[in-house]
Computed example of a mutant assay.
Amino acid sequence: MIFYEIERLRREQSYSMPLNHFHDHYEIYYLLSGKRYYFIQDRSYLMQEGDLVFIDKNKLHKTIDANSLPHERILLSFNDNWVPAKDPDYQETALAPFRQKHIIFSLSGANRTLVENLLFSLMREQQQAQKGWELNSKALLTQLLVFCARLIDQQGPTEEHPQAHNPKIFEIVSHINEHFQERLSLATISKKFHISPSYFCRSFKETTGFSFVEYLNNIRIREAQRLLRETKLKVIHIAEQSGFDSVAHFGRVFKQVTSQTPLECRKMMHLGL
């Protein structure tokens, strides 16, 4: 299934993204105005107008209010079927912005004008849907990606801006990412990092936008999806390797996060849907 979408949206009120958010497609997020915190994988970035962020496939992410209303953004999403997967140059160059450790670009001057013009052109192509709009959109998207890849080579990525008031939370997030297969609980985390459970819960939510349980479940389900896609392991073994104590609990959480059962998910993956 080919997936491609570009959307411009302005929000006047407070807004945070849905809790469960990782997916098997690429995203480009451009902030036209306002400020947002963007949590990606294991840290938060403060985004301001003119900032561009690249979200690789299956990276857990969420935008969070930064006490600045309103805000306006452009979100561009596409999957592997939209790009020439058999072209090694495309994979190495055009998709390079998604593969960097630091994936925030702060644009100004001519660079900002060029990127905004490309994004506006992409929106017009989709809205007008004239003959050849898909072909032209792919060309415009390639131009955008190559331009940003050249920025990486010329000036390097923009310095990141994590939420400095909670460095311990980022340390805990990294620990969860590395040890999600183990038995983790609020009590064990609090004891290991010498932090009170109530303070940990509040700070974790403020920093990441997720509760501890929501975040842990998302990380485990993402691993389960990988195992369903890449192995022939039985569901009971996938549950164990993903960190779940029982296959019943695994099934409930999996459906809550993905709206599918594990077997339904494996079938769709094998069909290429």
Rank of each mutant, 00 (worst) to 15 (best):
2 I>G: 08
2 I>W: 07
3 F>Q: 01
7 E>C: 08
10 R>V: 07
15 Y>A: 03
17 M>G: 09
18 P>S: 00
19 L>A: 10
21 H>E: 08
22 F>Q: 02
24 D>K: 13
25 H>K: 10
25 H>S: 02
27 E>W: 00
28 I>C: 02
28 I>R: 02
28 I>W: 00
28 I>S: 00
39 F>D: 03
41 Q>H: 13
41 Q>W: 15
44 S>E: 08
49 E>Q: 13
52 L>C: 13
53 V>G: 03
56 D>E: 12
57 K>M: 15
59 K>V: 14
61 H>A: 05
62 K>A: 01
66 A>Q: 08
70 P>F: 00
71 H>L: 10
76 L>M: 12
79 N>S: 13
82 W>D: 10
84 P>Q: 04
87 D>I: 08
87 D>S: 11
90 Y>D: 12
90 Y>Q: 10
91 Q>S: 14
92 E>M: 15
93 T>A: 02
94 A>I: 03
98 F>G: 05
100 Q>D: 15
110 A>R: 10
111 N>C: 08
112 R>N: 14
114 L>M: 14
127 Q>N: 11
129 A>V: 06
129 A>N: 15
131 K>M: 09
133 W>C: 01
134 E>H: 09
137 S>H: 07
137 S>K: 01
138 K>Q: 02
139 A>L: 12
140 L>P: 09
142 T>W: 03
153 D>H: 07
154 Q>K: 15
158 T>E: 05
159 E>F: 07
160 E>C: 05
161 H>L: 12
163 Q>S: 07
164 A>W: 13
167 P>H: 09
167 P>R: 02
167 P>G: 05
172 I>D: 00
173 V>C: 00
175 H>C: 06
177 N>L: 09
177 N>F: 00
179 H>M: 06
180 F>S: 09
181 Q>H: 13
183 R>Q: 14
187 A>Q: 11
189 I>D: 01
191 K>D: 14
195 I>N: 03
198 S>M: 05
200 F>Y: 12
201 C>A: 11
204 F>T: 00
205 K>Q: 10
205 K>Y: 07
206 E>L: 11
208 T>C: 07
212 F>A: 01
212 F>K: 02
216 L>F: 04
219 I>K: 06
226 R>H: 14
228 L>F: 03
231 T>S: 15
235 V>F: 01
235 V>I: 13
240 E>H: 10
245 D>L: 13
248 A>T: 15
250 F>G: 01
250 F>Q: 01
253 V>Q: 00
254 F>R: 07
254 F>Y: 13
257 V>L: 11
257 V>E: 01
258 T>Y: 08
263 L>C: 05
264 E>T: 11
264 E>R: 05
266 R>F: 04
268 M>G: 11
269 M>Q: 13
272 G>P: 06
273 L>V: 14
273 L>H: 14
